[in-house]
Amino acid sequence: MENSALNIVVLVKHVPDVQLNRHLTGEENTVDRSDSILSELDEYALEAALQLVEARGGVAAGNNVVAVTMGPAGAVAAVKKALQIGAFEGVHLSDEALAGSDAAATSLALAALIRHLSPSRPVDLILTGMASTDGETSLLPAQLAARLGLPQLTFAASLEVTDDGGVRRAVIRRDGDSQSEVVQATLPAVISVTDQINSPRYPNFKGIMAAKKKTVTTLTVADIAVDPAQVGRAGSWTVVESAQVRPPRTAGTIINDEGNAGLLLVDFLAAQKLL
């Protein structure tokens, strides 16, 4: 069967806008989420999902794209934005018990959530961004794949799904420093994508109107059979003990080139002992 329908989960995170000043707050030094948006890098994962299902006849042909986030009440905004851009349904995992989760605890909760979604319909692909723009650890996709026992195809700069007599495979290109690799795995798989993979679309008026009719399911840790002690601060294996603001850089000497700026630059480097 050629191009059989796909059920794709896209993980989207609600993060502070990188264009604004970002802060750590509270005794636990967690990220202040007051001016947050859908993580820019997750838009590439959503776009990749939409392109895959559009090539397979879209929702009419039985394809599905579910935008999933884990975060406090306000994080549902990231799912709603994903619905406006084109995801078909949304899931918001929200629970007091999840506050302060590190990557390990987050991956535990998201793995349980994906297992919870699977009985009604097996998930074929889990797409994520290459990094969250707040934590920037890139740990989550590998930890999620490890917890689910699924192949990890990470830092995909291109992605294709092939169907070979019923065996569906994902093939990605991964660009390293010294080489570029083509990596392949059978579905289901966890795939993180880079900002090289596509150009994400913007929500249009039609998408914004259509999103109002799409469903967002809110789940708690009890719903996905996770023990509250395994997640949040209690279930995390790392703590942030203290945080210091780095004094912002200030502008130094700015000169206009009057024909000798290259020489003045060399004087500056010499004075700084950088030559």
Partner: peptide
């Protein structure tokens, strides 16, 4: 963290 704005 946060693009070099904090040291933790």
């Amino acid at each position: 963290v946060l693009a070099g704005s904090y040291t933790v």
